[in-house]
């Protein structure tokens, strides 16, 4: 039996009837058409499905849609539209920090969360922060470089603003 779910996704109020067993990932992808959230393992190991739930990265494959009742969800589509990670996206592009693009959503979510918590991480800290994001294509170095450059740019801008 479906239950009614009220939540906020990418700034929009959403009311949908969902089966209690529907994962947040399936709800976002299939019911809302937000296919930028990807499914790679459906057991919380690969990081392709990361979304921000009340500002915190969560595996949308491990969260039930009904658990998002009353929450605020931000997916890659929303993050893209707010422009909050535009510099990070630009550095990923410039450094070619993605190939097939399937992990990219999760990488951006992890990077954005890392830089909020630790604005100037070391390379080792960046690599640690990505320890739940699997990428088969790049070998990770370009991703680390892109995050590193973003962090240093942001820090320089913050410094200049003082």
């Amino acid at each position: 039996m479906k239950v009614l779910l009220s939540t906020t996704v990418n700034g929009e109020q959403v009311q949908e009837a969902v089966l209690p067993r529907t994962s947040l990932a399936d709800f976002l992808r299939e019911d809302l058409g937000l296919t930028g959230t990807h499914l790679g393992c459906e057991m919380g190991a690969c990081g392709a499905c990361l979304v921000l739930m009340d500002g915190v990265p969560v595996h949308a494959c491990l969260v039930l849609a009904v658990q998002a009742e009353g929450s605020t969800i931000e997916t890659i589509e929303g993050l893209n539209e707010t422009g909050a990670a535009a510099d990070l996206q630009a550095h990923f592009h410039d450094r070619n920090a993605l190939q097939c693009g399937f992990c990219t959503n999760g990488m951006l979510m992890s990077a954005q969360a890392l830089l909020e918590a630790n604005p100037v991480p070391t390379r080792d800290e960046i690599r640690d922060a990505l320890s739940g994001n699997y990428c088969r294509c790049t070998g990770y170095e370009a991703i680390v470089d892109a995050i590193d450059t973003t962090a240093r740019d942001r820090a320089a801008r913050t410094e200049a603003a003082k």
């Binding site: 937000l34 296919t35 930028g36 990807h38 893209n80 990923f92 592009h93 693009g101 399937f102």
Partner: peptide, 14 residues
């Protein structure tokens, strides 16, 4: 690569 960064990839699974 830009559309992947924007969450606009077009995979068969989508």
């Amino acid at each position: 690569a830009r559309r992947h960064l924007a969450g606009r990839g077009r995979f068969v699974s989508d």
